[in-house]
Write a protein that binds this DNA or RNA. Sequence first.
DNA 1: TAAATAAGTTCCAAAATGCAACTTAATCGC
DNA 2: GCGATTAAGTTGCATTTTGGAACTTATTTA
Lengths: 143, 143
Amino acid sequence: MSDSKPAVQCGIEEALSVIGDRWSLLIVRDVLRGVNRFDSLQDSLQISRNILTQRLSNLEEAGILVKAPIKSGARRMLYNATPKCLALVPVLVSLIDWSTHWSEKTNARWSRVIDKRTGEAVRVDLVNKEGEPVSLLDLDLKY
Amino acid sequence: MSDSKPAVQCGIEEALSVIGDRWSLLIVRDVLRGVNRFDSLQDSLQISRNILTQRLSNLEEAGILVKAPIKSGARRMLYNATPKCLALVPVLVSLIDWSTHWSEKTNARWSRVIDKRTGEAVRVDLVNKEGEPVSLLDLDLKY
DNA sequence: TAAATAAGTTCCAAAATGCAACTTAATCGC
DNA sequence: GCGATTAAGTTGCATTTTGGAACTTATTTA
């Protein structure tokens, strides 16, 4: 009996093995903004239908989305975000932050994640156990 | 003259168009932990050499890595992180955080990003403009 | 100065992705 | 209630991307 895959070595690899393809995070983004039907996802993303089928079923299997009929017994489906999906928001926000600061294509009309209570954009901060900000220059990657 | 690619609609797409494949973020992780030679990257990642060549040149072109000979005129190369690369740390940390909380495979030996001054693991926080924490439940994705 | 090494490149095989047409059942309009 | 439309896929094939192993070329090292 030989291992089919080498053991995952770190959380980055582990996460990427689930959402590290060209489509999954975009599907997550769309579902979180309420695009939660097969055809509307296809329209929004311009993804090919068979790949969308595959990705949705991967995300469901990973516990990131749940599929349910619009009402019991119906054929129309809704894909909804689980808490595990919502927990990906910091990943999305850190990607948005990075593009905002470092892409020459940055556009003010781009989607942002906002605090409903204030309407203000939310960002991501690196902090220590106590919640105090940590500078990028003080970091080290331990393996 | 027709557009070769549809315009990018959001920072998430923009970021993923640069680092959204199965290898780029792992290369970034490795370079940040000091794995910065062609052969050591190949050993560490078990990536095929031609793909590694491609990815490194994409990352260089994107301003994420810089390639330089070990000493001037030499053939041995070093791939080094730019500030734009270092700015990806919050993305890496948010992925690590997500795996830590939501993967059943979580392993304490997995790599972490630590604060050099204290040796403590660093995490990512969602905050508003004032740096105050914002709950996942108060968020909205605006498009 | 011969042997080993680093950094690729090349060629081919395999896998993933994309496209368009087709299927099937549910739902809508009348 | 019934025919037309729609939603959610599936299927088959073409294209693109990835992977693997051997080869190249210049550079170090012994």
